[in-house]
Nucleic acid binder design. Structure first.
Lengths: 334, 334
DNA sequence: CTGTTAGCGCTTTCAT
DNA sequence: ATGAAAGCGCTAACAG
């Protein structure tokens, strides 16, 4: 069916070695033979099998993308899609393939994700959406397989990470509210299994401390990044603190939920209550009022992760951490 | 480095043939030998190379996902992500891998997309986001490689397709407006390189005809699915027809653009002008007023496409077309 | 500059 | 029930 290197060799009247060399651009091939080989290969419509090549080269030029939960919870997808676009674009540029692997696959097969990657002979993996309490976090870090983790500060010889500087992101948000004159600022955080949640809380704390405002637990509500979580968080904080004039949410989705609640309750935003979110999802520009937020460079996170991985693969560099800068975007809610 | 079948064989004191058979669950293996082999394989942490297996089996159990333009134009991503999730989920269930290929990769490598798939030895491909004027449309249909195209009614022995029933979707939208009493209904369509655009126009036409309302060209504006396109379309149609009371947009994004324009111009929606979109993207529920729309079963499009492909691959069925039903969702704009 | 030879790690006849 | 041998399509010493 498919034409192999052997047939090209025969048709060109040379050995398969010569064909291989000619096609792979080695210099020690007579120019005429080379031309001949290329011409024949073209004519026979020869396409070298990457499978065969992978077997002998012991490299597949394929990267696995491990997505912890390829769920379609609103919000999560925006983040993932852009990161994915970044990864894919950069990978294509350097000639690597990307294969999607969801951990659910591994679960149903009862093999660890790492075994799965071994069977597929991935050259490296990028991990996205992993949680602090995921059982295979350590597997990733300790494995000899080069990996890059997104949004979790794991680092080792073969494991790099990339994340947004969430501490600073939070600082920007809270500092901005402080500059607007707010002093009673609540914080609705994401769930505690996300590494970013710890960092965002820290930034909130830091920003307050700079202004000598003591950090107090009961100004913080731990929700879960979702719309409903935002509503719950706002409700709870409002009950605890009648004098609260601003709330910072660890996700735009929560902020938008809060916005919805405010409308129902007749709370003016930003008049009665200022709001800042996190992520800069598209929605923030479409709701009314538009939502102030902290932008993460999602696409760039993807390209950066890829660069780190390729660095380990092709230039055998060691794992390192890369922190990307967030950006404050002021809109109507603050 | 990695342990091979040979080492398992040696450690178990049998031939590699026996190991292969034991591991792949053949029945003609003595139960004791089998147990022994499995035990040794487990102990040595043996992971069979799918690369080697693919080479000899001539099947990679890998599907290529061809995305015509992995761009991040707002709107397109929502559609793609959900379809992708559906494909991925179903593929994982039947033990196939999914590899992303963007056509830009092919372009930069100066090989046709089909050659690329041949080199990678995909068992099949799913094509998404292809346009009518894409040069390789025919390549897909005529290739011996099993394929499924999303949103383009291409069919052949090895090529199936899945799309939403766009004609009916449009009918639903326009009929709904007619039922609301509208008679002067404009239509802002997507770009003409999308197959869905033709169908959506047809549905618009049909629905009017049923009510004996003549279809006239100047009530239709061909835009491009984008926010700005929606604004341009609405402007133009309003200029042409002062008496227009409703507009149907071929995408939610355009409808939302229109909504924005209406707010600027003080046009009441739905009071002065009723609006219906298409796609049911998340945004429709978040903007104010919320947007009436035609929902496409995006996730299901992914799973269906996968089922069709697997059918061709594993049960060697022929290419067929599958039409999925859209659904009218009435919200505040109509 | 080119060909011979030996694998990469697996599956699969074909004997035994 | 098991093993020997061939071979999937390619690359890479090593000679010449």
């Amino acid at each position: 069916m498919t034409v192999t290197i052997r047939e090209v060799a025969k048709a060109a009247g040379v050995s398969i070695t010569t064909v291989s060399r000619a096609l792979n651009g080695y210099s020690d091939v007579n120019l005429d033979t080379k031309r001949k080989v290329l011409e024949v290969a073209e004519r026979l419509n020869y396409r070298p099998s990457q499978v065969a090549r992978s077997l002998v080269m012991k490299r597949t030029r394929t990267i696995g993308l491990l997505i912890s939960d390829f769920n379609r919870e609103p919000g999560g997808q925006y983040f993932m899609f852009d990161v994915l676009a970044g990864i894919h674009e950069r990978l294509a540029a350097v000639g690597y393939d990307l294969t999607l692997v969801s951990t659910t696959t591994a679960q149903q097969r009862l093999v660890s994700y790492l075994d799965l990657c071994t069977e597929k002979r991935f050259d490296g993996v990028i991990v996205m959406g992993i949680r602090l309490d995921d059982p295979y976090v350590h597997e990733v870090v300790e494995a000899p397989l080069p990996s890059v983790v997104i949004d979790l500060p794991l680092i080792s010889k073969h494991c790099a990470y990339v994340m947004t500087d969430n501490v600073n992101g939070s600082r920007f948000a809270v500092r901005h509210l402080l500059e607007r004159g707010h002093r009673k600022i609540g914080f609705v955080n994401g769930h505690q299994q996300a590494a970013v949640s710890q960092e965002r809380r820290r930034g909130y704390e830091d920003a307050l401390r700079v202004q000598k405002i003591p950090y107090e637990e009961d100004w913080v509500y731990n929700a879960d990044f979702t719309l409903q979580g935002g509503i719950r968080g706002l409700k709870e904080l409002l009950e605890r603190h009648k004098d609260m004039t601003a709330v910072y949410f660890a996700s735009d989705l929560m902020a938008i939920g809060a916005l919805r609640y405010c409308r129902e309750q007749g709370i003016q935003v930003p008049g009665d209550l200022a709001i800042v979110g996190f992520d800069n999802i598209d929605l923030t520009q479409f709701v009314s009022p538009t939502v102030s937020t902290i932008a993460q460079p999602r696409y760039e996170m993807g390209t950066t992760a890829t660069d780190l991985l390729i660095g380990m693969l092709d230039d055998n560099r060691l794992g390192e951490g890369r922190m990307l800068s967030p950006e404050l975007i002021v809109r109507e809610t603050s």
